[in-house]
Simulated scan of single mutants.
Amino acid sequence: MRPIAIIDDDIAVRDSLSMLFETRHWPSLGFDSAEAFLGAANVADFGCLIVDIRMTGMTGLELYGELKGASYLPPVLFLTGHGDVPMAVAAIKDGAADFLEKPCDHRVLVAKVEQYLDADQTARGDWEVRQHLAERLASLTPRERDVLRELLVGRLNKQIADVLDISIKTVEVHRARIYSKLKVRSGVELAALLRDVDWDVSA
């Protein structure tokens, strides 16, 4: 299980939550500011983030804005005072998982964190599959990308050779290399693999 990040400038809150999670055998790491988290941590290393919405320096909302640009963002649960509830609601509309008002019911907090850790495992698995595919696509040469683009619109080897002004044998070589790099055995598998991928093969 990946650790839970506790980002709060109140040491009492950090210590209390850390001890609470320890009773469930959930690892956690505390950070006393948003800046400390950004300077020392990789957000993808965590299974869930618990963030105080109002902190000295960068606020929790500002931190969330920074983290949204990450390639992977685990569930984010905001802790908020009563006066900050409208901001927390806005954060949920912007993709945050949820918020709890301080002082929060620890039973509710534990139930939510357990839910988010489970959700993280599922989402992370999908993300890792996409990451691995992106790495394989990045390994293609410019000419292999040209051939892949033509394959994806359904052209046959002879048609691809005519479009790219290369020999059929060269097309066959590139096609075989594409299949090998992307770990597919047929055009059907290739199309299925890339069906939902937002990737510009001409790049």
Score class of each variant (00 low, 15 high):
Met1Ile: 14
Arg2Lys: 15
Pro3Thr: 14
Ile4Glu: 09
Ala5Arg: 07
Ile7His: 06
Asp9Ile: 11
Asp9Asn: 10
Asp9Trp: 11
Asp15Arg: 14
Asp15His: 13
Ser16Gly: 13
Ser16His: 11
Glu22Gly: 06
Glu22Phe: 13
Thr23Glu: 11
Pro27Asn: 15
Ser28Asp: 10
Leu29Val: 14
Leu29Phe: 13
Phe31Met: 07
Ala34Val: 02
Ala34Met: 01
Ala34Ile: 03
Ala41His: 10
Val43Ile: 11
Ala44Ser: 15
Leu49Gln: 01
Leu49Pro: 01
Ile50Leu: 15
Arg54Pro: 01
Met55Val: 06
Met55Ala: 03
Thr56Arg: 10
Thr56Tyr: 06
Thr56Ala: 14
Thr59Ile: 07
Gly60Thr: 09
Glu62Ala: 14
Glu62Lys: 08
Glu62Ser: 07
Leu63Met: 05
Tyr64Pro: 01
Gly65Cys: 07
Gly65Met: 09
Glu66Ala: 13
Gly69Asn: 12
Gly69Arg: 15
Gly69Met: 12
Pro75Glu: 07
Val76Asp: 02
Leu77His: 06
Gly81Asp: 09
Gly81Val: 15
Pro86Arg: 09
Pro86Thr: 11
Ala91Val: 04
Ala91Ser: 04
Ile92Met: 11
Ile92Tyr: 06
Ile92Trp: 05
Ile92Ser: 05
Asp94Ile: 04
Gly95Phe: 03
Ala96Asp: 04
Lys102Glu: 13
Asp105Asn: 14
His106Lys: 11
His106Leu: 09
Arg107Ser: 08
Val108Tyr: 00
Lys112Thr: 10
Glu114Asp: 14
Tyr116Arg: 02
Asp120His: 04
Thr122Asn: 05
Ala123Phe: 04
Arg124Ile: 01
Gly125Met: 09
Gly125His: 10
Arg130Asn: 08
Gln131Asp: 11
His132Val: 12
His132Ser: 14
Leu133His: 09
Arg136Gly: 08
Leu137Asn: 05
Leu137Glu: 05
Ala138Ile: 06
Leu140Gln: 07
Arg143Met: 13
Glu144Gly: 02
Arg145Asn: 13
Leu148Asn: 00
Arg149Gln: 05
Glu150Arg: 04
Glu150Val: 02
Leu151Asn: 00
Gly154Ala: 02
Leu156Asn: 02
Ala161Thr: 10
Ala161Gln: 08
Asp162His: 01
Ile166Glu: 08
Ile168Val: 15
Lys169Val: 14
Val171Met: 08
Val173Gln: 06
Arg177Ile: 11
Lys181Cys: 02
Leu182Ala: 06
Val184Ala: 05
Val188Lys: 11
Leu193Phe: 07
Leu194Lys: 01
Asp196Glu: 14
Asp198Lys: 13
Trp199Cys: 11
Trp199Thr: 06
Ala203Glu: 08
